[in-house]
């Protein structure tokens, strides 16, 4: 049953990814500017531009260009960057690690902060603690990411020197260097999502705490933390998971800014760089990648739904 659902969801994702690819291809080729200008620099002559464009195949009709690209993809070849001539798969491979590390760390921080805060607020609803928790989380959310980044760097990296001001170290270089470089960016990125998830947790928990089985659990004399986290949180999980999931997807834009501010060589910056320099081959591959990633995350969310809330059944 679960397996059939899984396979069906996976199969239904294929046309989605295909449609994304077509739209992205069209969208990008409609934007003004092209990679030949980057290769030749801002003072290039029209004659040289024409020659480079021809060599890049940008003169060909769009359907033909799309065909070439698709043919490559189907053969497992993502092509080469139109600007640096480096293989796209290598460029993405160089960048994916830092972004995954950043997203996971940020999500860990988010959940570690937001869940307890949300539960606390729901438990003490209406009390000062409740208001304080909400106000604090919203404050984190409403400060622009780059401002928070600057402030954190100024304090903890430049003045106090506890953390690195910029750059990235892979976990393979050791846990301490990795955390020195990753802590501030993870907090910066997490600040945006703490509010969202804390609030969603609170809202869901409040609802669940009124249910009869919670009363029953309490009446049975179970310890309050156990009631809160074991019984209530588990049943309040569905909307929380939705928001965590879409939070992951939304992280891309936060990642772009965070990576810029902390100089982390990740996918977010690659996305913006390649859009701004119109490196078609690279952007198309990146869109395909994020598309697939997104489908996978959502698949996991749907699975989690089915597991946490058995009331939802799939045909």
């Amino acid at each position: 049953m679960m397996l059939r659902f899984f396979v069906w969801r996976l199969a239904s994702a294929v046309p989605v990814v295909a449609i994304i690819a077509v739209i992205a291809f069209g969208l990008l080729h409609l934007t003004p500017g092209d990679p030949a200008r980057i290769v030749l620099g801002e003072n290039a002559t029209a004659e040289n531009l024409a020659a480079v464009r021809t060599a890049m195949g940008l003169d060909l009709p769009l359907p033909v260009q799309f065909g070439h690209w698709l043919w490559g993809i189907l053969h497992g070849d993502l092509g080469v960057s139109m600007i640096s001539r480096a293989p796209v798969s290598r460029l993405i491979g160089q960048r994916i690690g830092p972004t995954v590390a950043l997203a996971l760390c940020a999500m860990t921080v988010t959940i570690a902060v937001a869940l307890p805060l949300g539960v606390l607020a729901a438990w003490k609803r209406g009390a000062l603690v409740d208001r304080a928790v909400l106000a604090l989380s919203v404050l984190g959310f409403s400060v622009p990411v780059f401002v928070l980044g600057y402030v954190l760097i100024g304090t903890f990296a430049v003045d106090l020197r506890w953390f690195a001001a910029q750059g990235y170290r892979s976990p393979a270089d050791g846990l301490v260097p990795f955390l020195r470089h990753m802590t501030l960016p993870a907090i910066t990125l997490a600040s945006t999502y703490v509010a969202l998830i804390a609030r969603m947790t609170r809202a869901s928990m409040v609802e669940v705490l009124d249910e009869d089985y919670i009363r029953t659990a309490r009446a049975k004399g179970l310890a309050e933390p156990r009631v809160l986290f074991r019984h209530a949180l588990r049943n309040a999980a569905v909307p929380i998971i939705t928001v965590v999931g879409s939070g992951f997807a939304m992280m891309v834009s936060g990642v772009v800014i965070t990576e810029s501010v902390f100089n982390i060589p990740g996918i977010g910056r690659l996305v913006v760089d390649s859009v701004l320099s119109r490196d078609y081959a690279l952007i198309q591959a990146l869109i395909l990648l994020t598309g697939v990633l997104y489908v996978v995350i959502n698949l996991l969310i749907d699975l989690a739904y089915a597991l946490t809330d058995p009331r939802i059944r799939y045909q």
Binding site: F146, Y150, I153, G154, A157, V158, R161, A164, A165, Q166, G167, E259, S260, V261, F262, N263, P265, R269
Partner: peptide
């Protein structure tokens, strides 16, 4: 040649000796 997308970051890196 290290790329730095943000000037404030560059200043911090310069100050820290990175």
């Amino acid at each position: 040649w290290q790329s730095m997308p943000d000037m404030q970051t560059t200043m911090n890196a310069l100050q820290n000796g990175d």
